[in-house]
Amino acid sequence: MVFPADPVAVRQALCALFTGWTPGPISSEARDAAQIVLAEALNNIVEHAYALAPGEIEVTVEATQGGVTCQIIDAGVPLPGGALPDGRLPSPAAAEDLSEGGYGWHLIRSLAEDLCYRREGGRNLLSFRISAQQSSE
């Protein structure tokens, strides 16, 4: 699936992928986790990789017995330092000082396995797997 890097196109892509997902080997927990991780990864690409110039995103999603594998390719700028952010939660704060951002990579890191990022031929390749067996956490 290829679509332009903007928030509305991301929403439409996620709805196309996850609405009417037929029950099978993938539990609803794994499906929810896959949608959350994909959404965060795609929003990051829209917001950061394509912050300065528009572009396209290519997504491949495959459901197997073991879970859901996803690959995302974009031609935006590389991740800072060429590495995945560590996804630490914003430090706990008083209610009035709560951070309104900084939760995306934490969600990705919490839910995805085999997270892999590389830069190849001017493109960013991100892949990950959502286990069919979701722990209670």
Binding site: L14, A39, N43, S99, G101, Y103
Partner: peptide, 12 residues
């Protein structure tokens, strides 16, 4: 469904 942008909006 809510993503971290939506969560940030609820926090705001």
């Amino acid at each position: 469904f809510i993503d971290s942008s939506g969560l940030g909006a609820v926090v705001a």
